[in-house]
Write a protein that binds this DNA or RNA. Structure first.
Lengths: 150, 150
DNA sequence: CTTGACCTTAGACCAACATCCAAGGTTTAT
DNA sequence: ATAAACCTTGGATGTTGGTCTAAGGTCAAG
């Protein structure tokens, strides 16, 4: 069991951030000490790790709540319902991966094109790197399903 | 050339968002009409596409500005400097890709585990899917573990 | 039994990223 | 030539995701 400060320190976030996540239903410490201190378990730690990782790849806290509630609602939701949510998130993940692949390719091309020496960077631009890409791919449709706030 | 409303509509953003990006140096329309309307070129469209794509994978506007200014500064910056920035961003991209790979694997496992039929979702949780992964991020500190009282 | 490092709460405050509004000028279609 | 549908500006407002403050309780160590 970890106290709030221990867990926060381990993940380099503020205590307040953990309280914020709790207030918004993302991470509730599994127990409290006699004196009311929040006590976080290993599983709580795991959840925090998940939240922070999901954030770095562009998921909002609302998205993350949705992902986590796959667990919370398990008694209530039929497997088919879960599958719908999971598959939707999977599609989002795959879109993001495609974007990143694209970025990676462009950046690599840039990095190689750039000498790494002291010449002018005249030919070093992201847009030039992207230019070879035929770009009628619109960034994904913002499907607004009833996205409950978290 | 596109007027603001045309470009905004094409990418499903608000006109205000384009003005906001302009105010913050991310996307300045390449010209103005006689009456002062913003006129966006194909290249501007390209830049907007870039901005929105970068946003979906978790880059902040500040990050994006940095990426775009690789171009803007090209006369001023030595190639080596550019390479440093590019390689740093490349590392970020690769970190994000690793996270997403991980998510993808977990979600796929979930999707497969979930029957897609009407059984209970009892075994469908992100955390279970992630459980096989040993959490390793910040291995550090642990002077004392404190006693458990429950 | 006090000191200092922890923790609690409620609520104010903040930065990033938009989004809306008011008052007015421009274009296009009828 | 006038309505509808654009566009301009500056400034106010909203959402998301925290971060800080104040007033006070807890706990191990000297």
């Amino acid at each position: 069991m970890y106290r709030i400060g221990e867990l926060a320190k381990a993940f380099d976030v503020k205590n307040d951030t953990l309280r914020f996540y709790e207030k918004h239903g993302l991470l509730t410490p599994s127990s409290r000490s006699d004196s009311g201190y929040r006590m976080y378990s290993e599983e709580d730690k795991q959840i925090l790790s998940f939240i922070l990782r999901a954030k770095t790849v562009g998921f909002s806290l609302a998205d993350i709540h949705e992902l986590l509630s796959i667990e919370v609602d398990k008694a209530n939701s039929a497997c088919a319902d879960v599958k719908v949510v999971v598959d939707a998130k999977l599609a989002e993940v795959e879109t993001k991966m495609a974007e990143l692949n694209h970025f990676q390719k462009s950046l690599k091309r840039l990095s190689n094109a750039c000498c790494g020496g002291s010449e002018s960077a005249a030919d070093c631009t992201i847009l030039e790197a992207l230019a070879s890409d035929v770009n009628n791919i619109h960034p994904e449709q913002h499907h607004h399903l009833n996205k409950e706030r978290f």
